[in-house]
């Protein structure tokens, strides 16, 4: 039974260059900072880094891995912190922090933090319906 305070199983992503590049292209994001290390460094970054569409995808995956295949994700709200460069380990943790009934659905609010060695990369709130 879902309840406020329930902790989600942690998800650890090894952010390899392949991961950064394949997710950028799968989200049709061709900005050079996501696939060209030299250009990324020229622009002041430490290297290529994850794009925001991938963050949204990872947060969605993290929540539905827990909520099950029939769950419906209704909203993903996210705030970005430190960048997530290639060769980082991104650790997603989360817990259920709220519950509401909206449009006749039982919606659970899940708070998610994706942290790497630099600090918090993404802080998200997800509304999900478990079925």
């Amino acid at each position: 039974m879902t309840g406020i305070g329930e902790v989600l199983p942690e998800l650890v992503i090894e952010v390899t260059p392949t991961f950064v590049i394949s997710t950028a292209l799968a989200t049709r994001d061709f900005q050079d900072v996501h696939h060209d290390p030299e250009l990324a460094r020229e622009r002041g970054s430490a290297g290529i880094f994850l794009n925001i569409l991938t963050d949204t995808g990872l947060v969605s995956r993290f929540v539905t891995d827990w909520a099950g295949p029939d769950a419906l994700v209704r909203r993903i709200s996210l705030r970005l912190g430190v960048p997530c460069h290639a060769h980082e380990t991104l650790r997603l943790t989360g817990r259920v922090t709220g519950h509401a009934v909206a449009d006749g659905e039982d919606r659970w609010e899940v708070s998610v933090v994706g942290a790497n060695s630099l600090g918090d990369h993404v802080t998200a709130t997800v509304w999900v319906v478990r079925r």
Partner: peptide, 27 residues
């Protein structure tokens, strides 16, 4: 391509698009 890259094996995405792909369609 998206589920493979993200590592999401949710079987429902054989029938529906992941909602987080909304923006991807119009990139």
């Amino acid at each position: 391509n998206w589920t493979e890259a993200i590592g999401d094996d949710n079987p429902t995405y054989e029938h529906y698009a992941p909602p987080a792909m909304a923006q991807v369609w119009t990139m």
